[in-house]
Amino acid sequence: MTTWSVDTAADVLLAAEAKRRDRGPITEEWPELDLPTAYRVQKRLIERKVEAGETVVGVKLGLTSRAKQERMGIDSPLTAVLTDGYVLAADEPVPLDQLIHPRVEPEIVFVMGKRLAGPGITAATALDAVESVHAGLEIIDSRYTDFKFTLPDVVADNASSARFVVGGKAVSPKSLDLALEACVLTVNGAVTDTATGAAVQGHPAEALALAANALAARGEALEAGQIVLTGGMTDAVFVRAGDQIGAEFTSLGSVFVTAA
């Protein structure tokens, strides 16, 4: 019988990641795990990664689709933390031997030019703090069996973070209509899905503003130079050995990953 605590939950999730062993939701064994406690678990998990030598490089948003939010019973995106341990170089294959059941989704990525601290952040204020916009792909990999979890479970698990890659083309946010920025998701050259930036909370800057305000409620902020993954534009696709998955954008260029 596990005696659950913030530290225990962080240890269990880190062990599942390291051993590539998925498990049932923690809430099935620890029903007292609520959303505030889940963010404390997430914070401890990241602290453990930093203690092991990783560096925090940014933030990611999850559940930025309004339809997904309604299904989970929330009205704003969740946030998670990015470290350099999640970074995948543009020419580096997705390391399937280090992951459990990875999926890939296309993202609009911000690099922050200025510190952004709530409360009271609007989309316009948020976008003004952005230095550049990039194409991106995120590889997610839940530590829960079949990606089945409650909202506190996925927050504790750092929103299924695994790897991400950012395209090399940097575009000024002032030159884009991000709500209309289109993306085509391909697997081995075949189109599997399409979307525009409007899929991300109506506009990626709206998601960024909500994230800044949510972080402020926990005494945190987005810092200059940090990377922000604004949320999946389409449903994520499973990654299989040999697959090449690409995201081709109207103005942001293209980014590809290959699974080894």
Score class of each variant (00 low, 15 high):
V130Y: 00
V109S: 02
E92M: 03
A124E: 15
A135M: 06
I108H: 02
S132R: 15
A123K: 10
L96C: 10
R143T: 09
R103P: 06
Q98H: 14
F110S: 06
V94G: 12
E107Q: 11
D91K: 11
V109D: 01
V133I: 14
I100T: 14
L116H: 04
A129F: 05
A124M: 11
H101N: 13
D97F: 07
G136S: 09
S132W: 02
V109Q: 02
P95D: 09
A117Y: 01
E131Q: 14
S142Y: 04
L116D: 06
G120W: 07
P106H: 06
D146E: 15
A126W: 04
S132F: 04
A90L: 13
L99N: 09
S142H: 03
T145F: 02
F149A: 05
E105F: 03
V109C: 03
H101D: 14
P93S: 11
V111K: 13
R143Y: 01
A90V: 15
D91I: 06
P95W: 12
A117R: 15
A124L: 13
I108D: 00
F147Y: 15
S142W: 04
V130W: 00
A117N: 10
T122Y: 04
T125Q: 14
L96T: 13
P119I: 07
V94E: 13
D128F: 02
